[in-house]
């Protein structure tokens, strides 16, 4: 049984089709990513999975239960770490965990034991009696993830878990997510950071304008869409572009650069160097970011 299964899943707000008839399946124990520019429909999809937003049409099953009708059971079995900091400012760090766990109807001993264990897991034990206002942004994110695990969920939703964090805090959260994967917890993740998706996700989808435009394993998507190498050339000339076009190479030209997508970066570079004077260029490995920008376009989404 898949952890999440969507068929023709659609969400319409007034006149906006935020999610437009998408199909996907998330396997149990998998880390599954939703990527896409702002307004692509990722967060709306997350909100439908955890029953915060009713679906307009289609089907959506979470842990084998349909979202229309069995919301309480679904919410009891999953954990949600929202994008927004909505920790309870009226309580201390530890109290945030026990009070939250109480919403799940857990007995006191379980609450106490889990709160201590999760504080330890997220390296927050020292901050247990601090007020929420007095801890750092990274600690708040960790506490939100700890809170999402109070009901020992089979499925964990992480909506942009590392946005705005410093590198140390991001790496710590990545470590913890990998640890959860080892424990066979299904993780559903949205992120704007491609390196994060590449490191953590077994499979992912890229969404744009409410549709899924690409689906697969990160490495496969890179190979499929970009190739292995990217050659970046600063301030390319029109002759250079014409040459690249004639050679039939995959490329993209931005305002001040040209990117050539290829399997053999060194050879392409050598060939171009022979014919053109290039002020600066570099050859690097293709990344998921290249896939993302190539498929969703470079125009800014506001």
């Amino acid at each position: 049984m898949p952890a999440v299964r969507a068929e023709k899943l659609t969400k319409v707000f007034d006149d906006l089709r935020a999610v437009d008839a998408i199909d996907f399946e998330i396997g149990e124990g998998e880390c599954f990513g939703f990527l896409g520019p702002n307004g692509a429909g990722k967060s709306t999809t997350m909100r439908m999975i955890h029953c915060a937003s009713p679906i307009t049409s289609g089907e959506l099953d979470v842990l084998g239960m349909a979202v229309n009708g069995r919301c309480r059971e679904i919410k009891a079995a999953i954990g949600v770490a929202p994008q927004e900091n909505n920790l309870d400012p009226d309580f201390t760090v530890r109290r945030n965990l026990t009070v939250y766990g109480r919403y799940f109807g857990l007995p006191k001993e379980v609450l106490e034991e889990r709160a201590d264990r999760l504080l330890e897991f997220m390296q927050l034990t020292e901050k247990r009696d601090e007020r929420i206002q007095d801890i750092s942004g990274g600690m708040k994110r960790r506490l939100i993830i700890a809170r999402a695990m109070m009901n020992d969920p089979r499925l964990l939703i992480l909506d942009e878990p590392t946005t705005g964090l410093d590198p140390q805090a991001r790496h710590l959260i990545w470590e913890k997510v990998r640890e959860l994967k080892r424990k066979k917890v299904t993780v559903v993740l949205t992120t704007h950071y491609m390196d994060e998706a590449e490191r953590l996700c077994d499979r992912l989808v890229i969404m744009d304008h409410g549709k899924i435009i690409l689906e697969g394993r990160p490495r496969e998507l890179i190979d499929q869409v970009i190739g292995t190498d990217v050659m970046e050339i600063d301030e390319p000339t029109d002759e250079m572009e014409t040459y690249v076009k004639v050679r039939g190479w995959q490329y993209e030209r931005t305002i001040d650069r040209m990117l050539i997508y290829t399997e053999e970066g060194q050879n392409v570079a050598a060939e171009l160097k022979e014919r053109f004077a290039m002020s600066y260029y570099l050859i690097r490995n293709a990344t998921l970011e290249d896939v993302f920008l190539r498929t969703t376009g470079r125009a800014l989404v506001e």
């Binding site: 915060a52 309480r72 009891a76 929202p82 927004e84 909505n86 009226d90 799940f104 999402a148």
Partner: peptide, 14 residues
């Protein structure tokens, strides 16, 4: 302001 309702809506409470 505190988004307490939003947080609780993710739990079994309706």
């Amino acid at each position: 302001y505190q988004k307490t309702f939003d947080a609780i809506l993710a739990t079994p409470l309706s």
